[in-house]
Amino acid sequence: LNLKQAKEEAIKELVDAGIAEKYIKLIANAKTVEGVWTLKDEILTFTV
């Protein structure tokens, strides 16, 4: 999975969960695949 694909998957998951745009922007700015997954997990843990 490359960075672009990771971001697309994570953003789709966050949108489906009804997460606010400000958190989705954090994913869009992530620099690594690991960073994308870590941010996604943290956002889902603390906002859902």
Results as ranks from 00 to 15, higher is better:
Val36Gly: 00
Ile27Phe: 04
Ala10Met: 03
Ile27Ala: 01
Val36Glu: 01
Glu34Pro: 05
Leu14Ile: 03
Ile19Asp: 01
Gln5Gly: 05
Asn2Pro: 10
Val33Gly: 01
Ala30Pro: 02
Val36Asp: 00
Asp41Tyr: 12
Ile11Val: 07
Val15Cys: 12
Leu39Cys: 07
Tyr23Trp: 13
Lys25Phe: 09
Trp37Pro: 00
Ile27Val: 08
Ile11Leu: 05
Leu39Gln: 04
Asn29Thr: 10
Asn2Met: 13
Lys25Ser: 11
Asp41Glu: 13
Val48Phe: 09
Ala30Asp: 01
Ala28Gly: 08
Tyr23Pro: 00
Ala20Phe: 04
Leu39Thr: 06
Thr32Asp: 06
Gly18Val: 02
Glu13Asp: 08
Thr32Ser: 08
Lys4Pro: 05
Leu14Ser: 00
Leu26Thr: 04
Ala17Pro: 01
Ala6Met: 04
Lys25Glu: 10
Ala28Trp: 14
Leu44Gln: 04
Gly18Tyr: 03
Ile11Phe: 04
Leu1Cys: 12
Tyr23Asp: 03
Val33Tyr: 03
Asn29Leu: 12
Asn29Cys: 12
Asn29Pro: 02
Gly18Asn: 05
Ile11Met: 09
Thr45Gln: 15
Ile43Ala: 06
Glu9Leu: 14
Glu21Gln: 08
Ile27Thr: 00
Ala20Ser: 12
Val36Lys: 00
Ile19Tyr: 08
Leu39Arg: 03
Lys4Glu: 13
Lys31Gln: 13
Leu26Ile: 06
Thr45Trp: 14
Phe46Asp: 08
Leu44Asn: 03
Ile43Val: 05
Ile27Pro: 00
Val36His: 02
Thr45Asp: 11
Lys22Val: 11
Glu34Cys: 10
Lys12Asp: 03
Ala6Trp: 04
Leu1Gln: 09
Lys31Arg: 08
Gly18Arg: 05
Lys4Trp: 10
Tyr23Glu: 02
Asn2Phe: 09
Thr47Arg: 10
Glu13Met: 14
Lys40Thr: 07
Asn2Ala: 14
Lys40Ala: 06
Trp37Ile: 12
Lys12Cys: 06
Asp16Thr: 09
Glu42Pro: 00
Asp41Leu: 09
Asp41Asn: 14
Phe46Ala: 13
Lys7His: 03
Lys12Phe: 04
Ile19Cys: 10
Val48His: 13
Thr32Met: 01
Leu26Trp: 09
Ile43Asn: 00
Lys25Ala: 12
Ala6Pro: 01
Ala30Leu: 07
Ile11Trp: 05
Ala10Thr: 04
Glu13Thr: 08
Ile24Leu: 10
Glu9Ser: 12
Asp16Ser: 11
Ala6Thr: 05
Trp37Asn: 14
Ala6Asn: 02
Thr45Glu: 13
Ala6Phe: 04
Glu8Cys: 11
Ala17Leu: 13
Ala28Cys: 15
Ile11Glu: 04
Val15Trp: 07
Glu21Val: 08
Leu44Gly: 02
Leu26Ala: 06
Ile19Asn: 01
Val48Gly: 13
Leu14Asn: 00
Tyr23Met: 05
Leu39Val: 06
Ala28Asn: 12
Val36Cys: 02
Thr38Arg: 15
Val15Tyr: 11
Ala30Met: 10
Gly18Leu: 04
Ala20Tyr: 04
Gly35Asp: 15
Gly35Val: 11
Tyr23Asn: 02
Asp41His: 11
Val33Pro: 06
Thr47Gly: 15
Tyr23Arg: 02
Asn29Glu: 12
Lys4His: 09
Thr32Tyr: 03
Asn29Trp: 08
Ala28Arg: 13
Thr47Gln: 12
Leu3Met: 03
Val33Asn: 02
Lys4Ala: 13
Lys25Trp: 08
Ala10Asp: 00
Lys22Asp: 08
Ala20Leu: 08
Val15Gln: 14
Asn2Ser: 13
Leu26Asn: 03
Ile24Val: 07
Lys12Gln: 09
Ile11Pro: 00
Ile11Ser: 04
Ala20His: 09
Val48Ala: 14
Ala17Lys: 12
Glu8Gly: 05
Lys40Cys: 08
Leu44Asp: 02
Leu14Lys: 00
Asn29Asp: 12
Glu8His: 07
Leu26Arg: 06
Val33Ala: 04
Ala17Arg: 11
Phe46Asn: 15
Lys25Tyr: 09
Thr45Gly: 14
Lys31Ser: 13
Leu1His: 11
Lys7Cys: 05
Leu44Cys: 05
Glu21Cys: 12
Ala20Trp: 04
Asp16Ile: 11
Ile43Cys: 02
Val15Asp: 04
Thr47Cys: 15
Ile11Arg: 05
Trp37Val: 09
Glu42Ser: 08
Gln5Tyr: 07
Leu44Trp: 05
Leu44Ala: 03
Glu21Tyr: 09
Leu14Cys: 05
Ala6Cys: 06
Ala20Val: 06
Leu44Val: 04
Glu13Phe: 10
Lys7Glu: 01
Thr38Asp: 08
Glu9Gln: 15
Glu8Tyr: 07
Glu13Lys: 05
Ala30Gln: 08
Thr38Tyr: 13
Gln5Asp: 07
Lys40Asn: 02
Asp16Asn: 13
Leu14Val: 02
Val15Pro: 01
Ile19Arg: 02
Thr38Cys: 15
Thr45Ala: 14
Leu14Thr: 01
Glu9Met: 14
Asp41Trp: 12
Phe46Met: 15
Glu21Ser: 08
Thr47Glu: 11
Lys31Thr: 13
Lys7Phe: 04
Lys12Ser: 06
Thr38Pro: 02
Gly35Arg: 13
Glu9Pro: 00
Glu9Tyr: 10
Leu14His: 01
Glu13Arg: 05
Leu39Pro: 00
Glu13Ser: 07
Ile27His: 00
Glu8Asp: 09
Thr32Val: 01
Lys22Met: 11
Tyr23Leu: 07
Thr32Lys: 02
Leu26Val: 05
Asp16Cys: 12
Leu44Phe: 07
Asn29Ser: 11
Ile24Asn: 02
Ile27Tyr: 00
Gln5Arg: 11
Ala10Tyr: 01
Asn2Thr: 14
Ala10Phe: 02
Val33Arg: 03
Ile43Lys: 00
Gly18Ala: 04
Ile43Pro: 00
Glu13Ala: 13
Lys22Leu: 07
Lys12Ile: 05
Leu14Tyr: 00
Thr45Leu: 13
Trp37His: 12
Val36Gln: 01
Trp37Asp: 10
Leu3Gln: 01
Val15Arg: 15
Trp37Lys: 15
Lys22Glu: 12
Tyr23Ser: 02
Val48Leu: 10
Lys25Leu: 11
Phe46Pro: 06
Gln5Leu: 11
Val33Thr: 06
Glu21Arg: 09
Trp37Arg: 13
Lys31Asn: 08
Gly35Cys: 15
Glu42Asn: 07
Val36Arg: 00
Leu3Ala: 02
Glu34Met: 06
Ala30Ser: 05
Asp16Arg: 14
Ala28Val: 10
Lys31Ala: 10
Thr47Asn: 12
Asn2Tyr: 10
Asn2Val: 10
Thr47Ser: 11
Thr45Phe: 12
Lys31Gly: 06
Thr32Ile: 02
Glu21Met: 10
Lys7Gly: 01
Thr32Glu: 03
Leu26Met: 11
Thr47Ile: 14
Ala17Met: 11
Lys31Pro: 06
Lys31Val: 11
Glu9Lys: 14
Lys7Ala: 04
Trp37Cys: 07
Thr38Ile: 15
Phe46Gly: 12
Ala28His: 15
